[in-house]
Each structure stands twice: as structure tokens, then as C-alpha cells.
């Protein structure tokens, strides 16, 4: 890994009825193993300070976080500079058990979508019910964003964090920008 990691779109921003920004580098670790195992949960807690989230849940706390990706996979999030150390720490803690810990930080692009229309920006692109009743804080949804896979969750009242593959970062940014274009509000989710 290069010592001078650069974020995929250098913090590109656009604003329409919601603000879309490329959120910069974030340390991300794919962690697979037995999620119900106490040793596994302990290792996750030691690295992030977070408990293992339940099905389709995400927990964030002080710049770190853990997201449930599948029944045997978590996405561990730490500051970008700490990712390698976190992988080493996880590998040491889980040695002897059946697990996988890989630093995937530089294979991902992170975006934030902010504003009252944030739900609508995503609702136009993903086949997901984004009404506040159906999708609330603490939930993560892995789905399709137009033609590419992505995952998103609520980081605040009207702030979504979205993760996609770095190779499609520009595509995702353009999608979100077009979806958020001023004047293109559908209003279906307006309260």
C-alpha cells in the first residue's frame, strides 16, 4: 500500500436538493468469522469499542464503527491510518479460530448525502423502501444503486453514509448528483 493514499474523488461535492460529498478515506476491514462467538465479539470490541451489531444493523462511535454485512461478515470501520494496525490486532486476537480479516480501505469509496431530501436522493436509485417508518437509524442496507452494488445507513437525522466500490466512485457520485438535482424532487417522501 502506498504511504500517500488519496481519496477516490478528492472530496468532490455537489449540491442540489441534498448535498452530496465524497467523504474521503476511511479505514475499512472485511472481517469474516463466527459472529456469535464470544472471542470474535471481544476482538471486535477491542478494536472498535463497539458490540457486534445484530442482523442488518450498524453501530458507529467516535470515528469507528461496525456494520453487519452478511451472517458471517462484518465491515469494521476505523480511521484510515489505523486500518493496518487494526487488521494486525484482529488477526492476533482471532488466531486459531476460523476467520478472515482484510484491509479493504483502498477498494472503497465513501459518500455522504445530507439534507432534508437525502432519503429521496437514494429512493430514486435503489429498490428500497426509504420511508422513515421502514428505514431508520441503526439499519444498514446493502443493495443496488442503479447499476452497481452499494450499502448505506443513516449517520444522523438527515445524513446518509454510503459505501461503494472505488472503481465505480465517479459513477456513483454522478448518479447521486443527478438524483439530487434541484427541481427534480419527487416529493413522495416529504412529510
Amino acid at each position: 500500500m502506498s504511504d500517500r493514499a488519496v481519496s477516490p474523488l478528492a472530496g468532490a461535492e455537489s449540491s442540489g436538493f441534498a448535498k452530496v460529498s465524497e467523504a474521503g478515506l476511511r479505514g475499512m476491514i472485511t472481517l469474516r468469522g463466527d459472529l456469535a462467538d464470544a472471542g470474535f465479539a471481544g476482538a471486535v470490541k477491542a478494536v472498535t469499542g463497539c458490540d457486534v451489531p445484530g442482523r442488518r444493523e450498524v453501530v458507529e462511535q467516535g470515528g469507528k464503527g461496525v456494520a453487519w454485512m452478511s451472517p458471517d461478515e462484518l465491515l469494521v470501520m476505523v480511521p484510515h491510518a489505523e486500518a493496518e494496525a487494526a487488521v494486525a490486532q484482529l488477526s492476533q486476537a482471532l488466531a486459531g479460530s476460523h476467520f478472515l480479516a482484510v484491509n479493504v480501505s483502498d477498494a472503497r469509496a465513501v459518500f455522504t448525502i445530507e439534507g432534508a431530501g437525502a432519503r429521496e436522493v437514494l429512493a430514486k436509485l435503489a429498490p428500497v423502501d426509504l420511508s422513515p417508518e421502514a428505514f431508520g437509524a441503526g439499519q444498514i442496507r446493502r443493495t443496488r444503486l442503479a447499476q452497481v452494488p452499494a450499502a448505506f445507513w443513516l449517520s444522523g437525522e438527515e445524513v446518509f453514509t454510503l459505501v461503494a466500490f472505488r472503481s465505480v466512485a465517479q459513477y456513483v457520485f454522478d448518479l447521486l448528483t443527478v438524483s439530487a438535482k434541484a427541481g427534480s424532487e419527487v416529493g413522495f417522501l416529504a412529510r
Binding site: 442488518r56 429498490p127 442496507r141 443493495t143
Partner: peptide, 11 residues
């Protein structure tokens, strides 16, 4: 049946 998501075909 694994993640419990009810989604449409394109997912």
C-alpha cells in the same frame, strides 16, 4: 433467508 431483506428481482 439469510439477511431477511425483502427485495425485488433486480437485487
Amino acid at each position: 433467508p439469510y439477511c431477511g431483506v425483502t427485495g425485488e428481482e433486480t437485487e
